[in-house]
Design a protein around this nucleic acid. Structure first.
Lengths: 142, 142
DNA sequence: GTAGGTTTGAAATCGATTTTCATTCTTAGG
DNA sequence: CCTAAGAATGAAAATCGATTTCAAACCTAC
């Protein structure tokens, strides 16, 4: 899984005439080993610990490349920062977001997926991506 | 419906020791009569047509009040601007967003709502709000 | 190797959002 | 009615995250 993402990224770079650099490798490694939903800032801070010479702009640009090539998707949980999430090709998952402590729980539900397709069908709409977030209070915060 | 929202807003202001002002009335009227998902900028431009003396900051602050008091919810469709949507207390609706032309279709689906509650239940999570967006291509853009 | 294009990092910029601050307004109490 | 106390307003400034600029450093194919 991890190996195939690194593969996908290299292939994407090659296909676009872009270059493989040590910074991009380092950032991808850190991204794959990182929190589920890092913001650019989050990932930059992590990368900087081991590689202080890598700049914020490079992390930012590299995360956009991840999104472009399909190994990450862009999320926004309402806290004002854009987050990136590593994705597997065939799997969707959604989120429970605790508005008190910020806890994020991931879940998957095939029935909901199917109903989404059904709704889209009634509007002759072709779904390419979706986002479902449930906001509220986690067990501890209630 | 419209009347009850004005009512709710006034009650909220009173309950918080906040004041009723002509600007807030004007902005609420314009919000209720406005596009389904205006950004602060959108609403400011509309308000300014008839009331050039009302400033952007006031529109911004008033929209936040709408969200605080529950007559509007905050949306983000990935275009970089925050949008506000008028909501009725007991009704949720979700969105189909066309990534080509920007068309936004609203829909409601009770079955999906119920499944969401079920999923939340299995995580002992109390849902206060949710967001479901399906991104893709509308009939025309396919 | 080397040329040509790409990437990098620091700093500048951008656009949206939020805050500041002096002035004006609302409202509850006299 | 007044008035005092606190809240709201609008213009401008500050802030914040995201993005771009630019000169120097770096890949890669030839």
């Amino acid at each position: 899984m991890t190996a195939s993402k690194k593969e996908m990224f290299r292939e994407y770079l090659a296909s676009q005439g872009l270059k493989s650099t040590s910074q991009r490798e380092i950032i991808l490694d850190e991204f794959l080993r990182s929190d589920a939903h890092p913001s650019t800032e989050d990932l930059y801070l992590r990368v900087r610990k081991k590689h202080p010479q890598i700049g914020y702009a490079t992390v930012h640009r590299t995360l956009k490349l991840f999104a472009d090539c399909g190994i990450a998707s862009v999320r926004n949980f309402g806290d004002g920062s854009t987050r990136y999430e590593s994705i597997a090709e065939d799997e969707h998952h959604d989120h429970l977001v605790c508005q008190s402590c910020g806890l994020i729980i991931e879940f998957e539900d095939d029935q909901i997926e199917k109903l989404q397709e059904k709704v889209a069908g009634t509007h002759n709409f072709r779904v390419l991506d979706h986002r479902l977030e449930l906001y509220g209070l986690c067990e501890k915060c209630q």
